Lab assay of single mutants.
Amino acid sequence: SKGEELFTGVVPILVELDGDVNGHKFSVSGEGEGDATYGKLTLKFICTTGKLPVPWPTLVTTLSYGVQCFSRYPDHMKQHDFFKSAMPEGYVQERTIFFKDDGNYKTRAEVKFEGDTLVNRIELKGIDFKEDGNILGHKLEYNYNSHNVYIMADKQKNGIKVNFKIRHNIEDGSVQLADHYQQNTPIGDGPVLLPDNHYLSTQSALSKDPNEKRDHMVLLEFVTAAGITHGMDELYK
Results as ranks from 00 to 15, higher is better:
F113C: 06
V67L: 08
P186L: 05
K51G: 03
R108G: 01
P74T: 15
L6P: 07
K112G: 12
E131V: 11
Y144N: 10
K106G: 04
F129L: 06
I135M: 03
H198R: 01
K130E: 06
N134D: 07
L220V: 15
I122V: 09
Y38D: 09
Y236F: 12
I160T: 07
G3D: 06
T48N: 06
P53T: 02
G39S: 02
I170F: 04
F98S: 13
S204T: 13
D189V: 12
K78E: 06
G23A: 02
D172N: 11
G90S: 00
L59R: 01
L194Q: 08
T224I: 06
M152T: 12
P191L: 12
V218D: 02
F45I: 03
L124P: 00
N143G: 15
Y144C: 11
R108S: 04
E234A: 07
M87L: 12
T49S: 10
Y65F: 00
F45C: 09
D35H: 12
Y91C: 02
L52P: 02
K40N: 08
G50D: 02
G159V: 05
D233H: 10
P195S: 04
D209N: 03
H168R: 00
Q93H: 02
F99L: 03
E4A: 10
F7S: 03
H80P: 01
L14V: 14
V192G: 14
K44M: 04
M152V: 13
E114V: 13
G227R: 14
G227V: 09
L63V: 09
K157N: 13
D75G: 09
K208Q: 06
H198Y: 04
M217R: 01
S64L: 01
L200P: 00
E33G: 05
M217L: 07
R121C: 04
A109S: 15
A225V: 04
A178T: 07
P88A: 03
V92F: 15
N134I: 05
H147R: 05
G23C: 01
E212K: 00
D215N: 02
N143T: 12
E110K: 10
L194R: 07
D128G: 15
A36D: 03
I46F: 06
R72L: 15
Y236N: 15
K165T: 13
V162M: 08
N169G: 03
D75V: 12
H216L: 00
D132A: 04
S201T: 14
N104I: 15
D154G: 08
N158H: 04
I13V: 06
K40M: 11
V175A: 10
K213Q: 04
I170V: 13
L6R: 15
F222V: 11
P191H: 10
K125M: 08
Q176R: 03
H168Y: 06
I127L: 15
L17P: 00
A178S: 05
L136P: 01
F26L: 01
V192A: 11
F99I: 02
N184Y: 01
K51R: 11
Y199H: 07
F164Y: 08
D179H: 09
H147Y: 07
N120S: 13
T48I: 04
S85T: 05
L193R: 12
G173D: 10
S201N: 12
H80L: 14
N143Y: 06
K125Q: 13
L200Q: 04
E123A: 08
D18H: 15
V175L: 09
D18E: 15
R72H: 09
V10L: 05
H76L: 08
D179A: 06
N163Y: 12
N197Y: 09
E4D: 09
A109G: 12
K25Q: 13
K51M: 10
V223L: 15
P210T: 11
T37S: 12
G173S: 05
A86V: 10
G188D: 09
S174N: 08
N143D: 11
R214C: 06
P210S: 07
C69S: 04
K100N: 06
S207N: 06
P12A: 02
E171G: 12
K213N: 03
I228M: 15
N22H: 04
T48A: 04
E4K: 11
K139V: 04
V175E: 11
